[in-house]
Design a protein around this nucleic acid. Structure first.
Lengths: 219, 219
DNA sequence: TAGGAACCGTACCGTACGGTACATATACTG
DNA sequence: CAGTATATGTACCGTACGGTACGGTTCCTA
């Protein structure tokens, strides 16, 4: 299945072009810059078409989230035979990907938009973002740690708890800080490695390696 | 020093009343509900006074953050003699307080406001919130884990790293979820205990207790 | 008691937005 | 070729906002 099949199924090519332009405007100037008139001018389309396609402004915003989500597809590398090193490697790759996704300007702009709207629209956009936006990356992480458990490399009772632990170790308060406008990390790799070290200490099964990693955690 | 000395120093009583009303409006209806006319009507003051006191709307928003921050004062219980149990207790109290502060409606409303504005004002409000808003709670947590290290109960090289680890374990993605409009936790105590368990496994010094706690972490 | 500072309430101004209507152009289809 | 669907662009409407101006009131002070 090609990457843009979903996008094509939900939006015509013309609509996709307009939605891409809308995302560009949003990233550049925030939601104040995303006016119907401004979008119509920038995308060389008419306001009437915008309202015909998306209903109203909220429909446009929802379509933008749906459109962006349809373009994100994470590489799912789990399912292979897992060694300790492979598991660690996969976890670190996931952590780096997560930090890069969350720090991407489109993701930040959409999250800012949904957060700003959450007080007025009953969190409709927020729900959209949570349910569809993070679905892919959540699924990938859960598959990974479940595979780790099946291979006897990880131990935990509740996969949800374990995933949230991993998420917290990787992201900490970085997401909110970036949403507030702070510059992203200098060294994503270091942050990812540290988080995975800690996660393996907490949920790894190899005790002797665990002690070695524990010593390396305070390096 | 009384709690409201700072507030009184920065704002007159009348201004404090108006700022409190502004926060109420913001919490109830988001930034769309916080209009100068609406605030003047709700607080029984004139728009002219608002502009005289705060300059413009951005000045009002900044004053609201400053005003709210001046009212938050965290109880600093560190500095006592620390046993393992006392440290754990203090860490759990901190974790619960952190979750309650972040989930408070005023905090959420101000964070949503600053995040929404961050695209247009060059993150001025975001910087304000980060530098002054979390200063108190950060200081308290750092004092606590430093005291734990001095007492030989915790070990870490970088206090900053350790604090961010604790923060991530406690908060995970809850803050962003709440900002997006999701309902807060049902069981703050459980989340706090789990996070502190993990933190002590990672940075505690008592090895035998560490193993016992490690087993309890997957309970 | 006279003067002034601070403040309230209201009216006002310019602007910009969301949304609608219409006139025109392009393309597909029988 | 005629007719229909779809799209553009412009003009328009009502509304609501940020910000300013002004007359009237209260209160403090010389």
């Amino acid at each position: 299945m090609p990457v843009d099949t979903v996008a094509s199924a939900k939006f015509t090519p013309r609509q996709s072009v307009v939605l891409a332009e809308a995302l560009r405007l949003l990233v550049e100037g925030g939601d104040k810059a995303l006016t119907t008139s401004g979008l119509a001018r920038a995308a060389n389309c008419s306001k009437e078409s915008l309202y015909k396609w998306f209903g109203d402004r909220d429909g446009l915003l929802a379509a933008m989230i749906s459109f962006q989500q349809s373009k994100v597809r994470t590489a799912d590398r789990s399912g292979e035979r897992l060694s300790v090193e492979a598991l660690r490697e996969h976890l670190e790759i996931f952590a780096r990907d997560l930090l890069e996704v969350l720090g991407g300007d489109v993701s930040l702009a959409l999250n800012r938009l949904a957060i700003g709207q959450s007080s007025r629209d009953g969190s409709k956009l927020g729900k959209l973002l949570l349910e569809h936006g993070r679905h892919e990356i959540d699924r990938r992480a859960r598959a990974l740690i479940e595979a780790g458990k099946r291979s006897g490399l990880l131990r935990f009772d509740d996969a949800d708890d374990a995933y949230h632990t991993l998420y917290g170790l990787v992201v900490s308060d970085l997401h909110v800080r970036m949403l507030l406008g702070e510059q992203g990390l200098k060294d994503i790799t270091r942050q990812a490695r540290k988080a995975v070290d800690a996660f393996i200490i907490l949920h790894g099964t190899q005790k002797e390696a665990g002690e070695a990693q524990r010593a390396s955690a305070v390096r």
